[in-house]
Design a protein around this nucleic acid. Structure first.
Lengths: 255, 255
DNA sequence: CGATTCCTTGAAGGTTGTCAACGTTGGTGG
DNA sequence: CCACCAACGTTGACAACCTTCAAGGAATCG
């Protein structure tokens, strides 16, 4: 995803920062973990920053009365734990979903150190920003789509992430989640996830079997998400800016 | 209880960064906007960073087929737009909900500049991190609670945010949202928001009338959220979240 | 005072959760 | 190789929750 950052200077500085951080990660040799291990447990200091070279991991929450919730899913290329030092209360729990190869920065004042270089600091900000964007997209999806739309969004999201890392070329990939985990990620029940997956299969839109996702009809899958085409660019009523008084937010009736 | 930030050095640097950013904001005189104005429109450059001194604002999304969605709600003390430069595609739309007083940093390379100071960079990272934490909490709530729980979470969230800014002392505050906007924020319909609000009122848990929220039973309200007590501890009266708050680092508290 | 916009409420129907049962898979030890 | 076990997947019936649709009341602003 070549970001067309508005500003050339910013873009150059970002590239620089990425290289610097990358170098920091390569100081120590990479580690390997098996599936189902905890990242936080291994090196308990909360100052550790991880970079996933290969494999998947997920961050989860335990709430007293609710079932477990998966807060985020990490794929190769992701950086985990930049904000660990800044999080007051809850050191988030991160678990590997597959066997994983990670690079680690494990210094006492790691983050403070990184912030000393302007380009690295900027790159770290960009990482934060990207993560934030993901959360927002997921929030919008979960709030305004039905189960089918959410599944579609998830399948498409991972497809794009893996593609942008050059990890897949065809329209199928390995998704190392159980249906239980998918349910915990989307806030649905296993039973319903199962139903909707069957629907997507019957409709020849996408298939998920034995941890293998195959996208059968990219167009229709996309149409189920919030990316639905804005091809109707014709001079249609833009719906915004119509009122002179209270321009935006004519929020009549939601969903 | 552990005050928060694990590291003393980090904490000191954060305080410093907060002061530095605060100073940057005070270079230009504050502006005032009326309710219903767009922030992004006013000063169209995407390099603008805002600091809300007084008033509320919200960030919203327009999706082709869906109705509008409110992505985030900003209260006094919040910083808006640090990531604007880093967002490739979509400059988010932000609208004031009340009349608002804001401080502005409007420089060409504003963010690049901020990142040059280690302490400011760290404070910016903390701001990112705090925003991320909010998104995650909201995600967890929206994914695993019913409408009543979501409403409770929202009411409680604003209550805590305003309290931590010393903007309220009693158990009531002004919430400048219409039920339509609440629905857009939570991903529900107006009709249902209305029903659930009535329920909360009838149950003497909380009241929302004419933009005024009154919390009638903090214990039961909390019990509806994900903070549900793990009552197995000692005999304390439920009094959740009493003073365990991390030291606040908001911009306003140093004036 | 009219005209919006917002709030409120009911009835009907769709979507999702709950519960319970059974099928499938993969690993382990005899 | 087989028996067994545990975790995961699959399915149906039913109930709870939420949306949709529709209509009327209340508040606000020119």
């Amino acid at each position: 995803m070549t970001a067309s950052i508005g500003n050339i200077a910013v873009h150059r500085e970002l590239m620089l920062g990425r290289r610097e951080l990358s170098a920091r990660f390569r100081v120590s040799p990479p580690r390997t973990l098996r599936a189902g291990e905890l990242l936080t447990g291994a090196a308990c200091s909360s100052n550790v920053i991880y970079h996933i070279v290969a494999g998947w991991a997920c961050q989860f929450h335990d709430f007293p009365n609710t079932h477990q919730t998966i807060a985020e899913i990490y794929t190769p290329g992701d950086v985990i734990g930049i904000d660990a030092v800044l999080r007051a209360r809850t050191p988030e729990k991160v678990m590997t979903l597959t066997s994983v190869t990670i690079e680690v920065i494990d210094a006492e004042g790691a983050l403070l150190d990184l912030m000393s270089s302007r380009s690295t600091a900027l790159y770290v900000a960009w990482l934060f920003s990207r993560r934030q964007r993901r959360s927002e997209r997921r929030l919008a999806a979960i709030a305004s789509l039905d189960a089918q739309g959410q599944l579609a969004t998830m399948l498409l999201d991972f497809y794009k992430r893996l593609s942008s890392q050059r990890l897949i070329t065809a329209s199928s990939y390995t998704l190392p989640l159980t249906q239980i985990q998918i349910a915990a990620y989307l806030g649905l029940t296993v039973a319903h996830v199962n139903r909707v997956l069957r629907l997507l299969r019957e409709e020849r839109i996408a298939n998920f079997e034995k941890h293998c996702v195959t996208i059968l009809d990219l167009g229709r899958l996309t149409r189920l998400t919030l990316n639905a085409a804005r091809e109707n660019s014709a001079a249609g009523p833009d719906q915004l800016q119509t009122n002179t008084r209270a321009p935006e937010l004519s929020l009549t009736s939601s969903r």
